[in-house]
Design a protein around this nucleic acid. Structure first.
Lengths: 132, 132
DNA sequence: TGAATTCATACTATTTTAGTAGTATAATAA
DNA sequence: TTATTATACTACTAAAATAGTATGAATTCA
């Protein structure tokens, strides 16, 4: 059970923006150098954050990205879900809508419980918690 | 973040054994029919459980598998780790031993916390909890 | 002996991951 | 207006993981 680089890098980008860009726009180039992540790969990742409305951008000279809201208003779970998709390890629920074995499956409530604690955890932290 | 079929099927096999085989050995064929999982794929999965010492087997006619211990003595986390490997979503720790960015990485303790609650959860349940 | 079963490998098709590459488009400063 | 700096979009790709199949040998019971 692993979270991919998308979610991990996305979190680092958001942290980077929170720490380095209070007002002005920050170029991806700067972020990619600081974070040691390929500029091209970061483009894809930040595009998802942009579409989700978590960052805003301007083009052109001195362009770049910056946060749209205050760090304490970003829930980590939202950032991860925007880049990773569903965080649930429960296939029974997500795979094809609903597992037909669900009713008699003795493992169902176990997985359901795991899903619950994972989501509760990631939704209990904000970006502000990470940077302080 | 998903748990693969290995861990999911392994859990179902263990539950099946706990429910259907108290004393006698149960053939994989029976389990695969009940669980609707390919016999051949189950062979691989139960082989891991066998190597881990969680089940015992006999070959030949009327051979099969049965649990070695009582259901309440099996911790779900152990079963999952035996088939999935590490359950941690934290690459920072596992990937190459240790992430060099660890010290300054603002996301590290977040992932570490996620790892902790996941492992605490799976280690708090036994096979007996599932079958009752 | 013969049927049923585990055990041990090897093989394979598909999907996901983790990027790279190239081009187009837009905005700004000088 | 022009050079520069940046984002936006679309393909492509190598490697790894996933989810199985296939084959055959070894073992046991009747």
């Amino acid at each position: 059970m692993k979270i991919s680089t998308k979610g991990r890098y996305a979190l680092r980008v958001m942290v980077d923006l929170a720490l380095n860009g209070t007002d002005e726009f920050i170029s991806l180039k700067d972020i990619s150098i600081r974070q040691e992540i390929s500029n091209k790969y970061l483009e894809q990742i930040i595009a998802m954050l942009n579409k989700a409305g978590y960052v805003e951008s301007t083009r052109g000279n001195n362009g770049g990205y910056r946060l749209k809201k205050k760090p304490e208003e970003y829930i980590i779970g939202d950032i991860l879900r925007a880049t990773e998709g569903e965080l649930t390890p429960i296939f029974c629920l997500t795979e094809n809508g609903n597992c037909p074995r669900k009713e008699n499956c003795k493992t169902y409530s176990f997985w359901s419980g795991l899903d619950k604690i994972i989501n509760e955890y990631v939704d209990s932290k904000t970006l502000a918690d990470l940077i302080k």
